[in-house]
């Protein structure tokens, strides 16, 4: 909890601020995760494009193997988002897993964090399974080929639309700190602690 603040009193008792009801929270973490998923689903890469990409560059035998891996990714995605969500949400999660693991050989801390941030708590076995399936797909298709495909379609890797404001502004983290006039006088603090046990 924040300590009592002057500006808190000014917000409450003066008439110069917007009166918001801060007890009513607009969005919590769960709502935010759902919103992020929705935004992700609207962006560049789709499951359909991934399936097409995996099939167009391979012969029939390879296509069968790829199809198996794609199914594994979908299954893992289903386990991560939960059964109650429709096919669209599952495919969007599968795209997310493909993007996350296309250049990774194991599920590291960063990947765990990224998935958790998008979907909340998830079974680690599903992440392992999707990571392994993506790795097999990438091995068949070729690293650079997949990287080019992802870079072309995926907005997550190109988040900057033009240059971000303030990129070149020198920012200082220095902040006001305690600057007392004097230390607590010894007479006050230590007189209670004088050892009288002669």
């Amino acid at each position: 909890m924040s300590p009592p603040r002057l500006t808190g009193a000014l917000r409450s008792f003066s008439n110069v601020s917007k009166k918001d009801d801060f007890t009513e929270q607009l969005y919590d973490l769960k709502t935010k995760r759902l919103k992020r998923r929705e935004l992700f689903a609207r962006e560049g890469l789709t499951w359909h494009k991934i399936v097409h990409f995996c099939s167009e560059h391979q012969d029939k035998a390879q296509q069968q193997a790829a199809s198996q891996e794609l199914k594994s990714i979908l299954l893992a995605a289903k386990q991560i988002v939960g059964d109650e969500h429709g096919q669209e949400a599952i495919e969007s999660a599968a795209v997310f897993l493909f993007e996350t693991f296309h250049n990774k050989d194991h599920v590291g801390t960063e990947e765990t964090r990224t998935i958790k941030q998008m979907f909340g708590p998830f079974p680690s076995s599903a992440a392992e399974a999707s990571c392994a399936a993506v790795a097999k797909l990438v091995a068949q298709l070729g690293d650079s080929h997949v990287e080019d495909f992802v870079q072309t379609h995926c907005s997550r890797h190109n988040p900057q639309r033009g240059s971000a404001f303030g990129r070149n502004i020198a920012f200082s983290y220095e902040s006001y700190t305690l600057d007392p006039l004097e230390d607590l006088p010894n007479s006050g603090i230590h007189e209670d602690n004088v050892n009288l046990d002669f």
């Binding site: 007392p180 006039l181 004097e182």
Partner: peptide, 9 residues
């Protein structure tokens, strides 16, 4: 004490 003394300053 430090906070009080800082406030005085």
């Amino acid at each position: 004490w430090k906070r009080l003394s800082h406030s005085c300053r």
